[in-house]
Amino acid sequence: MSVFFFVIFPYVCLTTFVVGHLWRYRYDKFGWTTRSSQLYENRLLRIGSPLFHFGMLGVVGGHIIGLLVPESWTEAVGISEHGYHVVAVAGGLVAGLAALVGMVILIYRRRTVGPVFSATTVMDKVMYAFLAVVIVLGMWNTIAGSILTIGGEYNYREGVSVWYRSFLAFQPDASLMARAPLGFQLHALVAFGLFALWPFTRLVHVFSAPVGYLTRPYIVYRSRDDDQLGSHRDRRGWDRVS
């Protein structure tokens, strides 16, 4: 059973994630957008959206460090387990809380502001459900697991993180995950569900984060595409007379 949940299902989701994005980018560049609703409503968005997005940036950064950096590395540079956890829990709480509060504001806005609600697709609603469950479970793991220590202390860096790295290295060890508390198991499962949905939702805009803007020239010049004059490409074997 654990092989299905922590090996097969995650790989299916990961494959969907990767192939889905390639497919969407190839065939639906026009649909690749944030689908912003700021035009409709700004008062709630102005608070909710930055809270959520900056919170999520912190959350993602925390996950990258927590999942990909082995415990032995941080110990090697002299960071104690306790010290690491204090920083991680504090940072995680702040970022997670910001994301959670932001998300509550945004969902409230989406439901109560008429134009925003009528611009919401079914896929948006499904995506919001997954996203909300993942974030709530993640907050629960941080609070219950690391602060209140309900159900005993659990060091995810010796369990979940190791499993995750083994998963990425294509040598998955399901037993590590099977021994993790239920909260972590559910968090991982729902998150993988979200990954599988990802390419088919507006979440694709994450991969358009415009970091190139910082370095590119202000004004972009482009020539008309010489390969394609008119609506068709030249057919194979035909040379243009110039």
Partner: peptide, 8 residues
């Protein structure tokens, strides 16, 4: 995104 361009 650099989507707006001026045609040469």
């Amino acid at each position: 995104s650099g989507a707006i361009y001026k045609r040469e």
